Computed example of a mutant assay.
Amino acid sequence: MKSKPRQGWGTAAQPDQHYLIQPRALAGGGDIRHVSEFLRASGWRDRSEKRGPLFMESPDRTIRLFYDPHVQPGGWTISGAARGHQAAWNAVLGSQTPVEILAGLTDALTQPLSAHAPDVWAPLRHQHWSTTYRAGQFTAESPDGTSWMQFHEDPPAPPVWWSGAGDQQGNGWTATFTATTPMHLVQAFTTALASPQPVMRPRGRIPHSAQIRTTSVSVLPSQLAAWQQARIQAARAAVWDRNWIAGSPRTTPRPNAAGHRARR
């Protein structure tokens, strides 16, 4: 009797129908492994309980990430503890935030600071977003009107970053960042938010939206696995390089280590 192939990435030989979606902000949540596997390969600890929500912690235990789609309003929560001159901060993003946009922020959590001063609005201006200032609100809006980024001040309430996307059919999400969120992280988020590059979703996971444009593509599961693995290897290589430069003990396998098994 022939054994059935195990289900998962890269197990079938037949191509699957996928769609490239623009604008990316309306593509829906996507596969959370795009975020979690990169963090795990970067040395983050998975503290999730069996069959519970995703809970990950940075190597120095100062940053925590939660994902739970089963509570209201559900979605992602990322919080950083106070450290030195950096105050505690918090970011909350809806469950329909595309993982590729969220990864702009979470990938930046694993990378060293740039020598350049961050500019949250620069990526938006580069993509021709319009900007307005009114009653303590500085707002940038995408050319198609589906996405926005806002810095809101309304004393005595604390200032806050507010972002999101939405269409006429009710699809969308919102995100809030405390004003204490490090600027380079907010800039990493706006860079991913404003990117004109489409994101890919499988058939059956396409939002019903009059505001999106789709391009049909056929993709082998092995190709999907290879793309994900390349992202994981890049994270491992970055950790290896940092440990080599710092002369610290290695905390992750060599970048070409075999036997990695994809998790959530």
Score class of each variant (00 low, 15 high):
Ala179His: 13
Pro182His: 11
Gly10Ile: 10
Pro202Glu: 08
Ile245His: 07
Leu193Ala: 01
Met1Ala: 15
Trp129Gln: 08
Met183Lys: 07
Ala12Tyr: 01
Glu141Trp: 00
Ser3Ala: 15
Met183Asp: 08
Pro249Gly: 05
Val35Lys: 02
Pro207Phe: 06
Ser114Met: 02
Met1Phe: 11
Gln150Asp: 03
Thr97Glu: 01
Ala12Phe: 08
Asp60His: 12
Val217Asn: 08
Pro15Glu: 01
Gly43Glu: 09
Pro221Trp: 10
His116Tyr: 00
Asp31Gln: 06
Arg24Lys: 15
Gly43Trp: 15
Gln187Arg: 08
Thr97Val: 13
Val99Gly: 02
Ala226Arg: 08
Thr180Phe: 03
Ala194Gln: 12
Arg40Cys: 00
Val186Thr: 12
Trp148Glu: 05
Gln228Glu: 12
Gln86Lys: 07
Ser248Tyr: 04
Phe151Gln: 08
Gly52Asp: 06
Gln169Met: 06
Phe189Cys: 12
Gly247Thr: 09
Thr214Ile: 15
Pro59Ala: 05
Trp162Ala: 03
Arg263Met: 07
Trp162Asn: 03
Gln228Ser: 12
Ser222Thr: 10
Gly30Leu: 04
Trp44Asn: 05
Thr181Phe: 09
Gly204Thr: 15
Gln17Pro: 01
Phe138Cys: 08
Met56Ala: 03
Tyr133Ser: 13
Ser95Gln: 11
Ala41Ile: 06
Pro159Gln: 10
His208Arg: 14
Gly164Ser: 01
Leu220Tyr: 03
Lys2Phe: 09
Pro5Phe: 10
Arg231Cys: 02
Trp9Ala: 13
Thr139Met: 08
Ala237Asn: 12
Pro182Trp: 07
Tyr67Gln: 03
Met200Ala: 15
Trp173Phe: 12
Ala82Asp: 07
Val219Lys: 09
Gly52Ser: 04
Gly104Pro: 04
Phe177Ala: 12
His152Glu: 14
Gly29Gln: 03
Asp60Tyr: 11
Pro182Ser: 05
Asp144Cys: 02
Ala122Glu: 13
Pro156Phe: 11
Tyr19Cys: 06
Asp16Tyr: 09
Trp244His: 14
Gly145Pro: 03
Thr176Cys: 01
Pro143Tyr: 08
Val71Tyr: 01
Gly259Met: 04
Gln187Ser: 10
Val186Met: 04
Gln17Met: 10
Ile101Asn: 05
Gln14Phe: 06
Ala81Trp: 03
Leu109Lys: 10
Arg6Tyr: 05
Thr215His: 13
Thr62Gln: 09
